[in-house]
Design a protein around this nucleic acid. Structure first.
Lengths: 104, 104
DNA sequence: TTATTATATGAACATATGCTCATATATGTT
DNA sequence: AACATATATGAGCATATGTTCATATAATAA
């Protein structure tokens, strides 16, 4: 019988990058609040800003961040852009974490 | 019948803090690698450093971070400290995310 | 076209983050 | 006690991050 050393299987670079990026998106209170709100209902930018008491600019910047990671998407209605969530996996991670935070 | 406005239920400050802290812990490649390794097997500090090609100091700093959040724990054996994971919820989040990253 | 409304963007700034170096501390050994 | 080994810690530094301000862009209305 050969040695059973069971060498540790490293995480590959790409997986590590995707995973860290995903969690980074969820690591900021403002982005969490935006995602949580969009999880409840589709919203346009100014609705988000008002509901969460944030500057329009702040919301817009964070939406760009979330859109780059394909965590949110939008549809246009005239000059208004309605944003909604676009990654159910990530929303599941968020909701699980919220649930744990409340019950631990 | 009264209006059914369904006002949005805000996340409370404490939940928001815990959730963002948790995801912040998982947002850094080095911490992800350490947690993933500890998920496979208990390790002492120098084993982690060698296995992941990190400076002892870097590992020690990150372990302190993870320990403060109670994501890892340790037992002492002489001058050697053996670290292991201490939050199954968070490890579940990590493994789910790795799985999604690989299959999407 | 001009004006209006909604959203996006870039620059500037303050703060946070992660790494490395040097050194401290703690336990065990001789 | 003196020494060796394992780990922890603080300072310094470079980079990343999040917000705000001012302004640009885009669609629509008059």
């Amino acid at each position: 019988m050969t040695d059973q050393q069971n060498k540790y299987e490293h995480l590959d670079e790409e997986t590590l990058f995707i995973v860290s990026q995903t969690f980074k998106a969820l690591s900021d209170p403002t982005r969490i609040r935006i995602l949580h709100l969009l999880g409840e209902k589709e919203c346009n930018v100014s609705e988000i800003a008002e509901e969460l008491s944030l500057m329009q600019s702040t919301v817009s910047h964070q939406l760009r961040f979330l859109k780059n990671l394909r965590l949110v998407k939008f549809r246009r209605a005239g000059t208004t852009l309605f944003y909604s969530v676009d990654d159910e996996h990530v929303m599941t991670l968020l909701h699980q974490s919220i649930h744990h935070a409340r019950h631990d």
